[in-house]
Design a protein around this nucleic acid. Structure first.
Lengths: 191, 191
DNA sequence: TATTTTAGTAACGTTAGTGTCACTTTGATG
DNA sequence: CATCAAAGTGACACTAACGTTACTAAAATA
């Protein structure tokens, strides 16, 4: 290496995440990022040809981390334990859902690197889906999950409910416990 | 009137909705809209000073419609019936959640009209919240809702679950029935 | 210490969106 | 049919983001 960088990849990616969540795909710019990192806009082009390449690279990083932690689910034998683990995991990365949606706005691009990145993202998605459908399969084997509810909805509930805004600042543990309660046994009493 | 408009307010608003959902707040432009309506960009400035004013006006229109239909909830006396009505209603406007989030990106603006529009939107939100908290109160009175679950989460579940993507194209009635089932009694069997 | 390699800068032309304005078009009304 | 008011146009100046490039700065190494 000839000269030290003024910023770390970690700083770059966490700023990327922040701005993507605030401004969305179209509102995300290299200038914004450059200012945050105290470098000039031009410097960023040393590493990424355009924002699609940067964003997809960041998303690969983010999904790899998620996948890494997701595979720990295998350590749990019983469905209930897998469920608890999954809920905890997802609550540590509540923005991932939204980021995936934002990243999907990246259209078919002429850039070769972006194409490759998008393919890698698809692979990562599929790996994630593998773990999740194993989880559902286990639940069905153990007869823990109601038979008539489609797989996609079971996973959808688990992933979507973390995005419910906690407007009134209910304490985290209480909030999570309530969500797990509803997903498991509903919000209705049996009266 | 001196001359007929080339577009109706309905066309304008439905295009606005479409582009907002596709491109988000920052990606929404007057040119996009003008092309869709087969008019020049300049013509739009006859009606709205800028995109914030257009978007807030559109959102007022959208929320008024929702509120209009929401107040029918009063016609139902029993909590269960109100619940059914609410679920059906929300499923007819699944994008409203996302649109509200997008509209919230509009920052404090110097334009007086935009300020007024934003205030009107706040009012509409509060009216909506009134109906919804009446609904929750009824559920608690009838002892239909579990006591330990916070209000915000009950409403959050109802509003958030409509955004779960039905990737595998489960038929609508089946999908809605399953969502109601989970919200009411959970996805777990009692074994 | 001279060389090489990488990091970063600053300026350029380009493109796309913004808001404005003088102008033309259209159709209803006196 | 002349007039007027609203609808619509197209050009203008401006700004912000884009991607490129010739350049300078810094640090490792030979």
């Amino acid at each position: 290496m000839a000269r030290e960088r003024k910023f770390s990849q970690d700083e770059l990616f966490s700023a990327t995440k922040e701005f993507l969540l605030i401004h969305g795909y179209e509102g995300f710019t290299f200038l914004l990022l450059a200012e945050r990192l105290h470098i000039s806009r031009g410097a960023l082009y040393k590493y990424y040809d355009n924002k699609d390449e940067l964003i997809t690279s960041y998303m690969i990083h983010e999904l790899k981390q998620l996948l890494n932690r997701l595979q720990e689910v295998k350590q749990y034998v019983r469905f209930d334990d897998q469920f608890d683990f999954l809920m905890e995991l997802i609550f540590t990365m509540p923005e991932v859902q939204q980021l995936i949606i934002i990243a999907n706005q990246i259209s078919a691009n002429t850039n070769e690197k972006v194409k490759n990145n998008k393919e890698e993202l698809t692979q990562l998605h599929m790996s994630m889906y593998q773990y999740l459908s194993d989880f559902v399969r286990l639940g069905r084997q153990e007869k823990k999950l109601k038979e008539n509810i489609p797989d996609g909805l079971i996973l959808g509930f688990i992933f979507q409910t973390i995005a419910i805004p906690n407007h009134y600042g209910v304490p985290h543990t209480e909030w999570v416990a309530s969500i797990k309660e509803i997903i498991s046994h509903g919000m209705f009493t049996n009266k």
